[in-house]
């Protein structure tokens, strides 16, 4: 009794793809695979953090208390937040020397030696990077020991009195930076070396012919400007990732001590959230840290990026 459908169906596919709505959505559909993880894993947690930062909550209590901006107020008036901020800047300073300036100088020096020797340096300097930071921290725990550690033994040979590397307020932050630097130096060195080697030889040669004989001049006028993008990348990596890398030795060796001297904003966030179980305060710290890094990235975009020469 059923009716036989005799009217031909319009091509569904054709009408769908030619509709103006589809045409408008099409680029976004292509973007979706990249956008979806970003939304799920970056932006949604960010918005959630913003919401959590307005609560007083230990993650378990069924009644989180809405406190508005009280967490931000507490943070901005607390000594430890400002100490952590200053420490974060100190870490950035230390790490920029250890992970940008020194690897760059080393990489440039290595380009001046014969290829065979170059290969040895590449391998030797990269080796520490294959170890995890946790292992590196455990190794340095022995090296730093004020009484039986190798570093103090070496210092005693030149009559320098023992340093309490991890427990002295003067040295602790430097020591933590040193662990991160030892572990990450090789990676940054290889990137910078690749950047320097990519500088066209004919430009260097013609600069020499034009009378630029000194290394300093060559570096300043030719190598550094042409390595701009690489240097910028390593700069950002050092500042953003270096602070996060510094979390591992802090958590394993100092727990932020002595007297909060090695705490930084990333560790403070962890400490509030997972040691003190104050997720509201932790989220507020995370948001403020995000703000600080956002400012840094904007400054970088406005100032540094303009001075960087991209070949393309």
């Amino acid at each position: 009794m059923s009716r036989v459908l005799t009217v031909p169906l319009p091509s569904l596919r054709g009408s769908l793809t030619s509709s103006p709505i589809f045409r408008k959505c099409k680029p976004y559909l292509f973007l979706l695979p990249a956008l979806l993880p970003l939304i799920l894993f970056i932006f949604a947690p960010l918005v959630r953090s913003l919401y959590l930062s307005m609560l007083s909550w230990n993650m378990v209590s069924p009644n989180p208390e809405w406190v508005g901006f009280a967490n931000y107020q507490e943070l901005l008036t607390s000594e430890e937040f400002w100490k952590s901020t200053v420490n974060t800047l100190k870490y950035a300073g230390c790490l920029l020397v250890f992970l940008l300036v020194l690897p760059f100088i080393t990489a440039y020096s290595v380009t001046r030696v014969p290829i065979r020797v170059q290969n040895f340096y590449k391998t030797a300097l990269f080796v520490p990077h294959v170890l995890s930071l946790a292992v590196a921290s455990a190794i340095f725990l022995w090296l730093f020991n004020p009484v039986v550690g190798v570093l103090n033994e070496l210092l005693s040979l030149v009559n320098i009195s023992a340093i309490n590397w991890l427990s002295s307020p003067t040295w602790a932050l430097f020591s933590v930076s040193l662990i991160v630097a030892w572990n990450t130096f090789g990676y940054h060195f290889i990137i910078l070396l690749a950047g320097i080697l990519a500088v066209p030889g004919e430009i260097v040669e013609s600069a020499r012919l034009e009378g630029m004989k000194r290394h300093l001049g060559l570096l300043r006028r030719i190598i550094i400007p042409l390595c701009g993008p690489t240097l910028l990348f390593v700069f950002i990596m050092t500042v953003v990732m270096g602070i996060q890398f510094a979390f591992v030795p802090v958590q394993m060796l100092t727990n932020g001590g002595p007297n909060q001297e090695t705490t930084h904003l990333v560790f403070l966030t962890y400490q509030y959230g997972f040691q003190f179980f104050r997720s509201g305060l932790a989220s507020a710290t995370a948001i403020l840290t995000f703000g600080l890094f956002l400012i840094l990235i904007i400054v970088q975009a406005l100032l540094l990026d303009r001075r960087v020469h991209y070949e393309n």
């Binding site: 022995w142 020991n145 004020p146 009484v147 039986v148 309490n164 991890l166 427990s167 100092t254």
Partner: peptide
């Protein structure tokens, strides 16, 4: 007396 982290203290003692 010594002032150092726990692990360092144990290392110093056992040495």
């Amino acid at each position: 007396a010594l002032h150092m982290t726990w692990e360092e203290g144990i290392q110093a003692f056992t040495n």
